[in-house]
């Protein structure tokens, strides 16, 4: 049907009229209608945008940007605080470590001192004991010398008596002592 009408229109050479199906876009009788409604539509959309949508969306975006900026600032703040806390912690750690070092040094010094005292005491005791021992050795030696003198005197007296002489104790003693010394 449509094609027939179109053919009829084409063969008659009377195109552009309202009934030509051909190309509706080139049917100029509908142009005023379309243009009118297009302008109405564009005005409506423009009013929707400028009166409501754009201010609203712009405000929301600005608000969100503000919120994000604030949040970022807060985060920066918190980060700063965290850094400070970390610094404080490190400081405390360093102090504690230093203290511990000091305590260790002190303990070492104390132990050294005690050790020194003990060593000194032990040395002193050893010295004392050595001195006593030496004294006794000296005594024993002295005792031994005396015994030798006695034995020599007695032997001399006996020898003198056996030889028939009258042993004068005093002379013998003196003689023996003189000999022993020489």
């Amino acid at each position: 049907m449509a094609t027939e009408a179109h053919d009829a229109a084409a063969t008659a050479g009377a195109h552009g009229a309202g009934e030509a199906v051909g190309m509706p876009q080139l049917d100029f009788s509908t142009w005023p209608n379309q243009i009118f409604w297009l302008l109405v539509t564009l005005t409506a959309i423009y009013l929707i945008l400028t009166r409501v949508a754009i201010p609203r969306i712009g405000a929301v975006l600005a608000e969100r940007r503000g919120t994000i900026t604030n949040d970022l600032a807060a985060a920066e703040d918190l980060k700063q605080k965290a850094l400070e806390a970390e610094a404080a912690y490190n400081e405390a750690l360093a102090t504690a470590r230093a203290e511990a070092g000091k305590i260790v040094a002190k303990a070492r010094a104390d132990i050294q001192a005690e050790l020194d005292v003990a060593t000194a005491k032990a040395d002193a005791e050893i010295d004392a004991k050595t001195a006593v021992s030496e004294q006794r050795i000296a005594e024993i030696r002295a005792g031994a010398l005396e015994s030798v003198t006695e034995v020599a005197k007695d032997t001399t007296k006996e020898l003198v008596a056996a030889l028939g002489g009258k042993a004068d104790a005093k002379t013998v003693n003196a003689a023996v002592s003189a000999r022993m010394k020489g």
Binding site: G18, S29, T30, P32, N33, Q34, I35, F36, W37, L38, V40, T41, A44, I45, I48, L49, V52, A53, I57
Partner: peptide, 25 residues
């Protein structure tokens, strides 16, 4: 079709306006 006649052009442009309004408002 006069310049003020309500046609399918009007209908679909109106639907477009309503859709835009629904989305943006």
């Amino acid at each position: 079709i006069a310049w003020y006649t309500v046609t399918n052009v009007t209908l679909w442009m109106g639907i477009a306006v309503v859709a835009i309004a629904a989305l943006l408002m």
